[in-house]
Each structure stands twice: as structure tokens, then as C-alpha cells.
């Protein structure tokens, strides 16, 4: 065995000890954080701290149609402004800087509009309470607001297609995602895949946290098994789809 190999082995052993040490440290930290959180939740439950949260939820439920409308308008109006700005900018595209600004406006409009749909879905989920008298009003508002957001997103897609003629796909078609991805050029594909990977990493970390919270909630707050099943199910699907595609080792 040469000196180089001996040195490598020595470094490997040191690195191994360091990795195990780190792992042990994280386990201890995780235990301390989990234990402290559980203790805090127990104290809050014993002292009636969660009754306050129930009160806030019940009060919000009374005003749910107004809350839904306000949330929709707060997010819809800025996205509309960005959409109109991008549309106006398209009529007078002269410089590269103006083009860049238009891209930014379109991106912001799309992001805010998508956020609007998620927020509306969240409020709809909170209003879907069998004991809530105004549930049907909330359901109606949810449908109206979501349809408006979907129309806005379709208009944004048409706008992007006008600006970038290589992009293909009908937003009303079931194959839209596939056609859209297929028409992307090499740099756009790279940005999209990189963003997708970053989102995957964030969601993986989020799933771990959410699963722990779901287990703590089940033990201490009687939230039931459903959140644990959903969280771990999504975690499993995300992980399997990513790993299976990475193992294919080919570009489609």
C-alpha cells in the first residue's frame, strides 16, 4: 500500500467519524427540538391556549365570504396590473431592457395569480365545515374566484406565446404541459428543470417538517391520522417519481 493510499484511508476514516458525529448531533438536536415543541403544545393544551385559536377560527368563519373576497382582490389586482403592464409593453417593444421588464411583469403576474388560487383553496378548505351555515356561499365564491384566476392564467399563456412564438400549447388542452415543455428551447428547459429540482428539495424538507407536525398533532391535539397519511403519501410519491426518473439516466 503506497503512502498516498494510506493517506486516503486515514482521511476517509476521519471523514467517516465526522459524518457519524454530525448525524448524532442532528439526532440530539432533533430530539431536543421535538421534545420542547411537544412540551409547549402540552402546556398550551392544558392552559387552554388553543381555545384562543378556536375563537379566531370561529370569528373568521363568520366573516368567511368577506375574507375570501378581500384575499382575492388583494392578490388579483396587482396581478392584473402586471398583466396590463406587460400587454402595454408588448405594443412598444424596442429595447432589450423593455423586453426584460415585460418578462418580469409576466412572471410576477403568473406567480401572484397562482398564489391567489392556492389561498382561495385554503380558505375554501377552512369554510368546508358542516356546522358552518354559509358554506354554500363560500363554495360559490371559491368557484367564481378560481375560474377568474384560471382565465387570467390562460390569457397570460396567450400573451407569452405572442411574445415568444416558439412556445406551443393550448392552455385549455389536457396535453398543455407536455406541449409547452416540448416547445421550450434549451436554456428555458434548463432553467425550468433547475427550478423544478430546487422546488423538489424545498418540498422534501417541508414534507419532513409537516410529517413531524402531523404526528405531534395526532398525539397531542387529536388531529387524527389523515394528515399523517396524506403527508407521508405525498412524500413517498415525490421521492419515488424523482428517483425513478433520475435512475433512467436519459433525457426525454
Amino acid at each position: 500500500m503506497s503512502n498516498y493510499q494510506v493517506g486516503q484511508k486515514g482521511n476517509g476514516t476521519r471523514a467517516g467519524v465526522k459524518t457519524w458525529g454530525k448525524m448524532l448531533f442532528y439526532i440530539v438536536i432533533g430530539g431536543v427540538v421535538g421534545g420542547t415543541a411537544s412540551m409547549l403544545i402540552l402546556i398550551l393544551r392544558e392552559t387552554g391556549g388553543f381555545t384562543g385559536l378556536d375563537g379566531i377560527y370561529e370569528e373568521m368563519l363568520k366573516w368567511m365570504p368577506a375574507v375570501q373576497t378581500a384575499a382575492f382582490l388583494i392578490l388579483f389586482l396587482p396581478s392584473l396590473v402586471y398583466y396590463i403592464r406587460a400587454a402595454r409593453g408588448m405594443k412598444r417593444m424596442y429595447s432589450d431592457e423593455e423586453d426584460e421588464q415585460n418578462d418580469q411583469d409576466q412572471g410576477k403576474a403568473m406567480l401572484i395569480s397562482s398564489t391567489n388560487i392556492i389561498v382561495e383553496f385554503l380558505l375554501f378548505g377552512l369554510a368546508a365545515d358542516p356546522d358552518y351555515d354559509g358554506m354554500m356561499v363560500s363554495v360559490g365564491l371559491f368557484f367564481v374566484f378560481t375560474i377568474i384566476c384560471c382565465i387570467q392564467q390562460a390569457l397570460l399563456v396567450f400573451q407569452i406565446k405572442r411574445r415568444t412564438p416558439i412556445m406551443k400549447g393550448d392552455p385549455l388542452s389536457w396535453n398543455f404541459q407536455k406541449e409547452w415543455e416540448g416547445s421550450m428551447d434549451e436554456a428555458t428547459k434548463m432553467i425550468t428543470y433547475r427550478s423544478g429540482y430546487k422546488a423538489y428539495l424545498v418540498v422534501q424538507k417541508g414534507q419532513l417538517l409537516f410529517s413531524v407536525l402531523a404526528v405531534i398533532g395526532r398525539m397531542l391535539l387529536s388531529t387524527g391520522a389523515f394528515p399523517v397519511i396524506i403527508s407521508c403519501g405525498l412524500w413517498l410519491v415525490g421521492n419515488t417519481v424523482y428517483t425513478k426518473n433520475a435512475m433512467k439516466n436519459k433525457l426525454e
Binding site: D96, R163, T164, E186, A187
Partner: peptide
């Protein structure tokens, strides 16, 4: 030509020309 026109000549988006 501007970036959009260059992109259209090369069959790519303006963003790709800008990134390059």
C-alpha cells in the same frame, strides 16, 4: 437586431440570447 429578433432568427427565445 435586438435580442428578440436574434432569437427568432436562431429559433430560440429572447431569454436564451440574453442568458448567452
Amino acid at each position: 437586431v435586438n435580442q428578440a429578433e436574434m432569437g427568432s432568427l436562431a429559433g430560440v427565445s429572447r431569454q436564451t440570447i440574453s442568458l448567452i
